[in-house]
Write a protein that binds this DNA or RNA. Structure first.
Lengths: 109, 109
DNA sequence: GCCTATATATAAGA
DNA sequence: TCTTATATATAGGC
């Protein structure tokens, strides 16, 4: 968008990169908020700039809460210092999942 | 954008809401990737649809790693340099395998 | 999902 | 930063 096209690769000019970073970061967060409101979704976004600064957005509650929900969804606590349970069962589950993947892949052929 | 303007509030029509959700979700993730590449940033995004389904993007490494970095940044040395152990990796792998299975299942339809 | 017509985002420039 | 010309995103309609 704008006066010229843009190559999808790291912008080398530091000044231009910083300007673009600010603009697009604002745009991204705005879009995230919009999606959240329009479609009743919960969204978490965090951005680490190249220099390590953090920018974040949680459309509902706090980022911590969203991260916890994320952890529950994917299958394990992340930030909490919760000790994990039963490594054995985990390995067993991995084996079964891999098997299922193989079956599915065969189905695709 | 588009043929008409849009009110910044929850879209009531379920069908339209679903369509918009798909379109804008894709747009948001694309923008996140672009920002990441252009400005050399690390970005994590996760979206829970109203129905609880998770969509995510981690522009570098895994979401887990980004979340860990997030935790270190915000919570300080919460779980200091706790070397991540077996069980966590297992959980991570399970999450990834499940994701792959979903993708394969979609391919079968 | 694939098409336009429009609304937005944003690259250059000052 | 603010402005302006263009590139993109996407609402509404098949």
């Amino acid at each position: 968008m704008g006066r010229g096209r843009v190559q999808m690769k790291r912008i080398e000019n530091p000044v231009q990169r910083q300007v673009t970073f600010c603009k697009r970061r604002a745009g991204l967060l705005k879009k995230a908020k919009e999606l959240s409101v329009l479609c009743d979704a919960e969204i978490g976004v965090f951005i680490f700039s190249a220099h390590g600064k953090l920018y974040e957005l949680a459309t509902k509650g706090t980022m911590q809460e969203l991260i916890e929900r994320y952890g529950k969804y994917t299958g394990g606590p992340q930030l909490p210092d919760e000790p994990m349970v039963e490594p054995m069962d985990a390995k067993k589950e991995i084996g079964m999942l891999k098997q299922e993947i193989e079956i599915l892949q065969k189905g695709l052929r």
